[in-house]
Every structure is written in structure tokens, then in C-alpha cells.
């Protein structure tokens, strides 16, 4: 066991876990942040995606030890006090979530994508989400959700 310290969704955590325990399990089991899902456990589906120091990573591939000192953001940290983030609102309105199991990872991937490209082209959206599998939607509603979120964010910046 080793003591690992990091911040999740702005909160400092210090936990004693086996160093090789998957970060995904630390989040789900030790911190009860079950919004991060497991779809494959081998880095293929993106259901376990989180933001790790601002980068999109699959938490099923990260040993807990590696998170020491890191700043993490999970789906639970995307909304503020029950208020949906605009990305979440767009997924809700545009039908971006069907069964919802891929949705947390998809929303974090969108977050990351829009940080990088505030005005993404269709190709950038397709590429940016290619690490997140969705079996329900065929992705079209997700693309629309992302486009609407980008548009709203741009309108906001234009206003301010």
C-alpha cells in the first residue's frame, strides 16, 4: 500500500491504496465516484475517460501511483452544484445520450476537444471523439451536441 495524494474535482484526496490499483477502481471504489464507467478495461472504449492535468486519459490504464500529485476531473466535476454544464445541457437536448453508459466519457472528451478547438470542424470532432465508443447513437446526435455546445460557448465569448 502507498499513500497517494491528488485532487479530484477541486477536492484534495489522500488515500492508502495498492500502488498498481487502477485509477478507475480508486475513483469508483475508494472515492465512490461511479460516474466514470468501465466498458473494456483495456483502453479501447473511453467509458472510463477523465481529465488528468487537463489531458484526456483512460483511467483503466493508469496505475494509482501515477496519479500522485495530479489534478483530476471526472464527470461529477463537470456540473456545478447540480447546474448542468453547457456541454451536458446540449447532450440532453440534442439526444447525445441514449443508454448513457458512454456519456460521461463522451462529455469529458468533448470538454477536452472544445478546450483545444473552440470552433471544431466536423473532422476534428470525429477525430477528437474517436477514442470513445458509443454503440447506441451512431454518433450523429453526439456530433450535433458538440457543435451546439461550441456555438453557445462562442456566442458567450463574443458577448463578453
Amino acid at each position: 500500500m502507498s499513500v497517494i495524494q491528488f485532487s479530484v474535482n477541486g477536492k484534495r484526496e489522500s488515500i492508502d491504496v495498492p500502488p498498481m490499483k487502477r485509477l478507475l477502481d480508486v475513483l469508483r471504489e475508494d472515492l465512490h465516484l461511479t460516474g466514470t464507467k468501465e466498458g473494456c478495461g483495456e483502453g479501447e472504449c473511453g467509458a472510463c475517460a477523465i481529465l488528468f492535468d487537463g489531458e484526456l486519459v483512460n483511467s483503466c490504464l493508469v496505475p494509482a501511483l501515477q496519479a500522485n500529485g495530479a489534478r483530476l476531473c471526472t464527470i461529477e466535476g463537470v456540473s456545478t452544484e447540480g447546474h448542468l454544464h453547457p456541454i451536458q445541457q446540449c447532450f440532453l437536448e440534442k439526444g447525445g445520450a441514449q443508454c448513457g453508459i458512454c456519456t460521461p466519457g463522451m462529455i469529458l472528451a468533448t470538454h477536452h476537444l472544445l478546450d483545444k478547438y473552440p470552433n471544431p470542424t466536423m473532422a476534428q470532432i470525429q477525430e477528437g471523439l474517436a477514442g470513445n465508443l458509443c454503440r447506441c447513437t451512431g454518433y450523429m446526435r453526439i456530433f450535433e451536441s458538440v457543435q451546439q455546445a461550441a456555438q453557445q460557448a462562442n456566442e458567450l465569448t463574443a458577448k463578453s
Partner: peptide, 10 residues
């Protein structure tokens, strides 16, 4: 969607 909010919130 009825259960949509819970889904996008994780």
C-alpha cells in the same frame, strides 16, 4: 429524455 439529466450528470 426522462432519465437524461441523471445520465449526463454521471
Amino acid at each position: 429524455r426522462k432519465e437524461g439529466r441523471a445520465k449526463v450528470l454521471g
